[in-house]
Design a protein around this nucleic acid. Structure first.
Lengths: 238, 238
DNA sequence: TCTTGTCGGATTGTTGAACAACTCTCTACG
DNA sequence: CGTAGAGAGTTGTTCAACAATCCGACAAGA
């Protein structure tokens, strides 16, 4: 048992070694560029150009495009090329519609899942604390990632692969909407709400937590929408 | 205003004109083969072989593979090839976990969506009636598709693009689990439950409908799981 | 001035062949 | 019995080329 304990440890990372197809590595690079705002929404990605710069063939690059297209970060228009996704206000509403359905459901049914021995709320607590710490020292970027992780880990409590994947995609798409807005505006207000939510969950008051989360998401949506309409700095960059 | 009213009508169908890339047409063919059971789960799809038969290049075929991979029908193992997805019992549980979250949430919040003028329940009613008619004449295949359409249209009531897409994917994956089971067993029992659900919704008793749907899905999952364990006919076909 | 038709450059869609990298199986060896 | 290695077959990736399509510009006509 204890002999091959480390074997299982490696097994978890084994998939990561093989994970290296050229297309996926290219996708990784582009994903970062997009989510970090280097490639603003609406930008067209030229195949020839990118294939030359990244030193891969057009075919491989196209495979990477498909990957990111499925993640919602890129849209593919036939004979026209691929573009960084531009989220409409409708998209924003839609994304929050799905988040509400998933996250609230997860919280409501938390009681149904028996504890797996290890503390399931550990990561969630770490995210909240990381957010509070980052807030105190004014590291807005860290506040943002902590907030993202919080919601990802919240959904992870359900132990559903598909819910996890869907959530990851939604949060990635959501990042597109953040472009051009100050992180302080975007994530600042939610540190305290995350804490409140965690406390309710810890206390086992799942129904109250679900209601809180529901209002949380509604407020967040309104907030994001108004932010988008206030700041039009990017319009001139087109 | 009334001048270009018909313009908006055309705009909706504009995207449909372009929808024909070779890769997508290839994907359509394969999708049908898979969902209709011609290619049982676990089958390996050889690139050379299929490219020759379908008269397309390997590169194009690979793009089609990726499309279907994203739909969950095919799995891609690096350096090993693509295979028709084999659903595990865990997958089945997971799929129903997501369905429950989405479908129940949709039903619960039906009241929040103002009627769009046209009768939103029309298609739902049509599906139920189609199912009842098919049941009476013993057309099990038609019962199955009617059942699928019912759930798809149910989610469509929320008017959310992403919920629609997710549901479509889940139902497509579910079809993989049906392989080898008699349609009568799979879909038969749900015609009457669909009717009951529709009646509750029509009466505006959304909470009762949600509860009914919840039990509906639990029963359905148990049912599917036991069917899989009863019938091992496909094991010998490997 | 505004619309419509046409042309050419640029980009994407698709192909086929080629080679590298990898997996799987079978065999031989300890 | 188990293991290392060779060989065959398949996938991963590249390249060059051509076809199909989009886009902007410019000219003709109302």
């Amino acid at each position: 048992m204890s002999d091959d304990g480390w074997l299982q440890g490696l097994a978890a990372g084994a998939a990561e070694l093989d994970r290296s197809s050229t297309a996926e590595r290219v996708a990784d690079v582009l994903r970062r560029r997009v989510t970090e705002g280097d490639l603003p929404p609406g930008t067209r990605l030229s195949e020839d150009q990118l294939a030359t710069v990244l030193r891969v063939s057009r075919n491989t690059l196209r495979e990477a495009f498909r990957l990111l297209g499925h993640e919602g970060l890129l849209v593919h228009r036939l004979h026209r090329g691929v573009f960084v996704t531009e989220l409409t206000d409708e998209d924003l509403v839609d994304i929050y519609r799905v988040r509400r359905a998933i996250e609230c459901d997860v919280v409501r049914r938390l009681g149904e899942v028996a504890g797996t021995g290890t503390d399931p709320l550990r990561e969630l607590r770490a995210d909240v604390e990381a957010g509070e710490a980052a807030l105190e020292r004014g590291d807005w970027s860290a506040v943002g990632t902590a907030n993202m992780h919080f919601h990802q880990h919240l959904v992870a409590l359900a132990g559903s692969r598909r819910l996890d994947e869907t959530t990851a995609r939604l949060l990635a798409e959501l990042r597109l909407a953040f472009q051009g807005a100050a992180p302080a505006q975007v994530h600042g207000p939610y540190v305290t709400r995350n804490r409140a939510l965690l406390d309710l969950i810890t206390a086992g008051r799942t129904e109250a937590a679900a209601v809180e989360l529901e209002e949380y998401l509604d407020v967040s949506l309104d907030h994001m929408t108004s932010l988008r309409h206030d700041e039009h700095r990017w319009d001139e960059a087109r």
